[in-house]
Design a protein around this nucleic acid. Structure first.
Lengths: 247, 247
DNA sequence: TGATGACTCTATGCATGCAAATTTAGGGGG
DNA sequence: CCCCCTAAATTTGCATGCATAGAGTCATCA
């Protein structure tokens, strides 16, 4: 599921979509130095797409937060620090906390929680961690969080979260662990599962503040997870977006 | 100050900037029905600008949340309900609460609060409410909130707030009151000033949670203010964005 | 040697033509 | 009377040419 989520206009059927996907890949791969100017003409050669769709894609990437518009026209690669990553996670936690609180406040019938319970159950049923089960686990995790947002019943909140998560930092994404870190990583996932369970319980009991606080702490768990992955690897090697972080 | 804030790319010096400003005006004025398709060609005639800058402006407005992209190309006027307005205010409150909390948690020296204190003092010095002093008051209010965000020292949070406030709902903006409502409106502003004072105090004492909660409630005050203005006027007549709300 | 000026060259903003796709209107068939 | 299918007209997506503004460079002068 997480792999199939397509951001708007990113379908491969149009020139703009192709340019967008390719540019995102290049940015995540670190093909551009932070602060480097992305000139349209040079991209025409590299992407085999004409200037018009490239311009549209650049505009979109600027709105998504990857690029910064220069006052004199054109775009620069935005620079990110590890602090930005932590703050993005904090913001995401705040918004998911709000989703959990609103879900608790606006719940009308306990059966609305069945969706969350199902994601939780399926995640629990995954006993051991392999490459394929991890990917499945992350899919279910995405599903859980999407369902939580749905229960908040707030289009404005959903829209805000969409905007914020256009940058890849907040999302759990996939992390690469060294062999020795695996046990600790599994522990993290189990703690996360316990938090999922507690969030469901809090919403069921209409404990809005409790739900909010757990969801916040749940986001901070992904910070700890990243820190763990970072502890004996370079950031470039343990996250898909590592190349974006300089400084 | 609030009048001089220019959203990126909205300067009048370019065709795209002109189109953007004009289209925003038209949308706020309610020139388009919710769900109506905005065809580029018809806009060429109405705005006296060619298709290229119009297309860019439409793209930008979609990212700002005014328009919705159709799957088959083109854009529709998005429809908003009064619930969306309340939720936008709630989200803004959550984010400003986060700014207040981070400001408290990250404060290193009490003198950093001087900016906030100055805005507060100037707002207090305004004794009576006229059209000109109200406008000045709102400017100072904007300044206070911008300074609060600055103190949070979080580029990611600032960026998020910018994204969310591209829609005009969250911001205090200007409201029109009937004569009989004026005393109540003045009371609201005084309560808001007291909250400003309390936020400063909470940050000074490094009471993060307290600062966060007051800032949230402060946002809800603007909901009450809108409800007051709404109480014996149509929404179209008391807010600048009233024409956007249907249903 | 440093700064300032002019000049060149490149990059972007904009306009417009063309083709493909979507929507819509109309007619024919069930 | 309703549905479907076809065809035309509108609309968007894309490519490209042109003009202007900006960046870079080199030379001259203080």
């Amino acid at each position: 599921m997480s792999q199939e989520i397509q951001k708007a206009g990113s379908d491969d059927s149009s020139q703009k979509g192709r340019a967008l996907v390719l540019l995102r890949e290049m940015l995540l791969r670190g093909d551009f130095q932070p602060g480097e100017r992305l000139s349209e003409l040079s991209l025409v050669a590299r992407l085999q797409v004409s200037r018009t769709p490239i311009r549209l894609a650049l505009e979109t990437l600027a709105h998504e937060g990857f690029l910064e518009a220069s006052a004199s026209g054109g775009f620069f690669a935005r620079k990110f620090t590890i602090e930005d990553v932590w703050d993005a996670i904090e913001v995401r936690g705040v918004l998911e906390g709000t989703a959990a609180r609103l879900a608790a406040e606006r719940l009308v019938d306990g059966s609305e929680l069945d969706g969350l319970r199902q994601f939780y159950a399926e995640m629990t049923s995954i006993s051991e961690l392999t490459l394929v089960t991890l990917s499945r686990f992350l899919e279910l995790n995405d599903g859980f969080h999407a369902e939580l947002l749905r229960l908040a019943n707030s289009p404005m909140l959903s829209w805000t979260v969409e905007r914020v998560t256009s940058l890849p930092f907040g999302a759990p994404g996939s992390l690469v662990f060294t062999h020795s870190q695996l046990p600790a990583a599994v522990t993290m996932l189990k703690i996360g599962q316990d938090q999922h369970q507690s969030i469901i319980e809090a919403i069921r009991n209409r404990q809005g503040t409790r739900a909010e606080n757990i969801a916040r702490e749940h986001a901070r768990l992904s910070r700890r997870t990243i820190e763990l992955a970072l502890s004996d690897t370079l950031i470039q090697n343990c996250t898909p977006w590592g190349a974006l972080i300089r400084a």
